[in-house]
């Protein structure tokens, strides 16, 4: 078995995932691209399990399992957030999420400087 084949596959998948995160505007599609990246990492881990003689055997596959669990947890919470965003704004376009807080009303009594003369 030539390990370079799955390794290159993983590298290309990772690149595609990065491209997808930076390209897509829909939050759900961004999450799909993130899944691509995580799967690329999984493939590297499983392949490495065969090429590297680790102190603890099969640690690569164990880690791949852990990554899958983490991905599941992440997708659950992430989609909950996306759905909450949709409820508030009726849109899941990542570009349209406002970052600044709405400016608070400035009453004259609250201005601290220059008040005490």
């Amino acid at each position: 078995m030539r390990p370079v084949i799955p390794y290159v596959t993983a590298a290309l998948l990772f690149g595609l995932g990065v491209y997808g995160v930076l390209r897509r505007r829909n939050a759900v599609l961004v999450l799909m691209a993130v899944e691509l990246m995580l799967n690329a990492v999984n493939l590297v881990l499983v392949t490495a399990d065969t090429t590297v003689k680790a102190a603890l055997p099969h640690s690569g596959q164990v880690f791949a399992l852990f990554v899958i669990v983490l991905a599941a947890a992440e997708i659950g919470v992430g989609l909950a957030i996306v759905l909450q965003l949709y409820r508030l704004r009726a849109s899941v376009t990542v570009d349209d999420v406002p970052l600044a807080e709405p400016a608070p009303a400035v009453t004259p009594a609250e201005r601290p400087e220059g008040a005490v003369r």
Binding site: M1, P3, V4, Y7, G15, L16, V18, Y19
Partner: peptide, 28 residues
């Protein structure tokens, strides 16, 4: 930007890994 960064990372990793492993063989 996406193509640049994505392509760069993907291809870069591929080059790295090819350089590391070449056409070696491993027993399953």
């Amino acid at each position: 930007a996406a193509a640049l960064v994505g392509g760069g990372s993907g291809l870069g990793l591929a080059v790295l890994l090819i350089d590391a492993f070449r056409w070696s063989r491993v027993d399953l």
